[in-house]
């Protein structure tokens, strides 16, 4: 299977660990991700906050590049995915033919065919790993853009974790906001939102959170030491990408190197579980 791949800017920088795990999983599953040549930034929150025209035009350029190639396009970043989908909707509303589908990476890899393939290739079931799935906002909301069937209570990541042999726990905060792009300008707001996510995850019995968005990962992973200091409580909650868990369960040899790039080191937990 071959798709156009729109990595987005973060995956060339702070989310290079996510990028590496995606390449690893694609290789394991025989998925060819052909990076969209000359793709540009989608404009993210900055564009839709200050410049609606740019917020429309930036993803449209990417969509046109993808349309020229003709393959479906997959985005691993929630905001990139959301902007590409919005672009596709805008084109369709103008009566232009949109011949390709825009995929969110988690949605793609939890299609039945991939779940079957993962089941077949499983070499190290993640037995005993208690996790909550954290989807964040923009892969699901607003459904008019994302076409999400169940935006308030998505379940595809839980389904994946169950296939991987882990124990996905139920909780009510799986689509609550982490504060997203406010991280730099108003870190105090992030701290409050994220601390509540930690507390709720712990109350659900989780040992880690699993994410499909590098912005969520950054906001939950990077400030954990700061939030712990402020709270007077040592949080130690690894924030794992779902792709890292697929690769781990399928026996990819490079998983420890990806995990070493997190600020909250997931290796002690996974070692204690006999998974590393």
């Amino acid at each position: 299977m071959k798709l156009s791949y729109y990595p987005g800017c973060s995956l060339e920088g702070t989310a290079s660990d996510y990028a590496a795990s995606i390449a690893g999983v694609a290789e394991l599953l025989g998925l060819t991700l052909a990076e969209l040549p000359d793709w540009n930034c989608c404009g993210a929150s900055a564009a839709h906050s200050l410049d609606e025209q740019a917020a429309r035009a930036l993803p449209l350029r990417n969509l046109r590049l993808a349309q020229r190639i003709g393959l479906d396009v997959v985005a691993p970043c929630a905001l990139c995915f959301n902007r590409l989908k919005a672009g596709a909707k805008a084109l369709a509303a103008r009566g232009e033919a949109v011949t390709l589908r825009v995929w969110d990476l988690l949605d793609l890899l939890t299609q039945p065919a991939f779940l079957r393939l993962i089941t077949h290739r499983l070499v190290r079931p993640l037995t005993g790993l208690q996790a909550v799935c954290y989807y964040g906002c923009l892969v699901n909301r607003p459904p008019a853009i994302t076409d999400a069937a169940s935006p308030e209570n998505p379940g595809n990541m839980e389904k994946l974790l169950a296939v991987l042999g882990a124990t996905p726990l139920d909780w009510s905060f799986k689509t609550d906001c982490c504060g997203a792009g406010l991280a730099v300008a108003r870190p105090d707001l992030i701290d409050r939102l994220v601390r509540r996510l930690y507390d709720r995850a712990l109350r659900a019995g989780a040992e880690c959170l699993v994410v499909s968005c590098q912005m969520c990962q950054a906001n939950l992973d990077l400030p954990q030491a700061r939030i712990s200091r402020q709270a007077g409580q040592a949080y130690d909650l690894p924030i794992l990408y779902f792709t890292e868990l697929i690769a781990l369960a399928l026996g990819h040899p490079e998983v420890p190197q990806w995990l070493a790039r997190h600020l909250v080191d997931p290796r002690p937990l996974l070692t204690a579980k006999g998974l590393l």
Partner: peptide, 25 residues
């Protein structure tokens, strides 16, 4: 009332523009 948020958005768009089309963090 929140110039920090506004300025971060501005800096982001300028960085994409001057950085050649992608964001340098």
């Amino acid at each position: 009332p929140e110039p920090e948020v506004r300025d971060f958005h501005r800096a982001f768009l300028s960085a994409v523009k001057w950085g050649g089309g992608r964001l340098s963090e």
